[in-house]
Write a protein that binds this DNA or RNA. Structure first.
Lengths: 364, 364
DNA sequence: TTGAAAGCGCTAACAG
DNA sequence: CTGTTAGCGCTTTCAA
């Protein structure tokens, strides 16, 4: 009996063999419990719901935590609970202002809610995207936010087989397999076309970069070209600059435009970065905007308003996309009430179709 | 004996009580092991070092993994190994191009190495930064990359008490407590001052936004002002625009500048965003750059070269900072060989002082 | 309210 | 090269 008791005592006081081996020294919940003279499960309860334990024990535990500088081990917690407070996000590029805005909005939205964002950058590469998704799912996240609605077959299979909530953003498709939050890029193109047509423009072009890699820009282009064709009975010219999107693409695009036989009186740029380059180059070449050439674009990035003239552009709901995506994931966690109101989010593959806005400035 | 055997068998075939309760259905390593007719530890070994198991078993295991669509549970793995392949990063703002570049470089650098980046955005708030650091450390990351060398006292204490490798970036301090990789912002300011002085400029100003919140911009300003004062025997004027950094700050700054009694012939902008606004506004007001006003800045963001005239600016080693930070962390993990060569990284609080570059264009 | 017990799924000695 | 074993630190019944 005495022997047994001593063994128990020593078990409580000494580090286990494994911990000794590894040289691990982490303060555990067990340490806190001992310090506070309660059991580990009471500490656990306190951490999740402080009002669940008696005030006296609560203050003892609080003191112990402060004294020992205790940091809970989320790995152990997640493993035990078979779920985590992590939300994974995969974007094509972190340096792209659109996605940076969306991710940033997610972070702010999550702020103080105790969730972590696991962020991955696929570099516009489907294979990398697949690898990222695989690794991210291994962290048992509450949800996985993908950018775009098209993935490699393997990735698609993976996403369908997981129990994790999947949300696709920035793109809406006809018969979605997952929850989607975005807007119609096709309609963005339509809006641009009708705006230019209503201004009485005759000869227009769609300017983009790296179109074969940018499905969403392609769709905007389609909406633009088909609509223009219907209105003006003439298909727009498409200028597709090779290489990554940068202001330089816009510079090149203008040269390309000027080298054509016809004279254009308006262009729709696939985004503001390109439009900026094009407008600055136009200024340099003494081409008057909007008199000689009207410019309309997509993005409404911070510099759009200070270009001369101000850039007419269509503003996407970057922040809202982030918020709704997070909302959909938190929604599916029964622990959390719905945050944003007024939108039906029922169904595994519901869609949230957000509005975009035409911001008219001097360039058109 | 028979009874015992049946019990064992049933234990292997049925889900455990806990899993049944929770309704968890995850494919585990155990499932793979059974499918492949080997033990779980063999599967584990295979996953970490495929060459460690015999070719025949290896192919069986591979087949089993594919068939079952097995995704390892990184939480369990990390817990068991008391370490993870996660690297945490805290930046002041994800939408800030400088930090986006650094984080993006980290991701690319880590690509295919099987490490994850846990990214947090402190929104330039020391309290948020502290909370983030605390939560991130709870994930037992291999390392934690902080931006800047100044934190709240509580945060400082936390960072010192942890066993996780801490790296501070984008800033170098006199007697560092942690490993630092950055460059001297003071010297950036010095370089800007001597460049303008060598050009024969007489009356200069330092233009910045939100200076009281931007320690690094303040330091660049100090380097600039002190050096200019020494060279020209006159302290520069400091224009500090309130509010978040944006091109609009530059627009406002120019008005401010023009409203002063003296006429300036050169300005040093704290970053390219501001410089862009200032230059566009100058063009609008028909102020000739560089003849009437020279502009030099800091950043070399993508648009710097396409402004008219091109923007003279000092390019920080954004990507290199990311690479060295990761390197320092991977270095401290004995599993990994040093990746970048030629730099001594000994010591817990060594410094990596990276070079920056003056890119001279038409604006100066 | 509180505590004991039984895992969560995996890693890492260790022995064979 | 392979399997056995003993945890990693926490959550969650369940009973007291």
């Amino acid at each position: 009996m005495m022997v047994l008791k001593r063994q128990i005592t020593s078990h409580l006081n000494k580090k286990s063999k494994t911990r000794q081996r590894r040289g691990t020294n982490r303060t555990t919940m067990q340490d806190v419990a001992k310090q506070a003279q309660v059991s580990a499960s009471t500490v656990s309860l306190y951490l999740r719901d402080p009002k669940g334990v008696s005030p006296s024990k609560a203050s003892q535990i609080k003191a112990a935590i402060d004294k020992l500088n205790y940091v809970p081990n989320l790995l152990a917690g997640g493993l035990a609970a078979t779920k985590t407070r992590v939300i994974a996000v995969i974007v094509p590029s972190l340096t792209n202002a659109f996605f940076a805005q969306t991710v940033s909005a997610m972070q702010r939205y999550l702020d103080q809610k105790g969730y972590q964002l696991l962020i991955g950058d696929s570099d516009y590469d489907e294979d990398k995207e697949y690898e990222l998704a695989k690794t991210f799912l291994a962290w048992s996240p509450l949800g996985l936010v993908m950018t775009g609605a098209k993935h490699s077959d393997a990735c698609e299979r993976l996403l369908k087989s997981t129990q994790t909530k999947i949300v696709q953003t920035w793109e809406l498709t006809a018969s979605p397999d997952f929850f989607q939050v975005g807007f119609s890029h096709y309609n963005v193109g339509r809006l641009a076309a009708s705006h230019l047509f209503s201004l009485g423009k005759k000869k227009v072009a769609y300017v983009a970069a790296n179109l074969s890699f940018d499905r969403r820009a392609t769709e905007r282009g389609q909406g633009f070209c088909e609509t223009w064709d219907r209105l003006a009975k003439e298909p727009p010219t498409i200028i597709d600059i090779e290489g990554q999107v940068s202001p330089v693409s816009g510079v090149k695009a203008l040269s390309e435009l000027l080298s054509q036989a016809q004279a254009f009186d308006a262009v729709f740029c696939s985004n503001d970065i390109i439009a900026m380059g094009l407008m600055l180059e136009a200024t340099r070449r003494d081409i008057n905007i909007p008199n000689t050439l009207s410019v309309i674009s997509f993005g409404d990035l911070p510099f759009a308003e200070i270009l001369s003239p101000g850039l007419t552009t269509i503003r996407p709901p970057s922040e809202l996309i982030g918020q709704h995506a997070i909302d959909a994931i938190l929604d599916s966690d029964t622990q959390n009430p719905r945050l944003l109101q007024g939108l039906s989010k029922e169904g595994k593959n519901a869609q949230v179709d957000l509005a975009f806005e035409l911001v008219i400035r001097g360039s058109s």
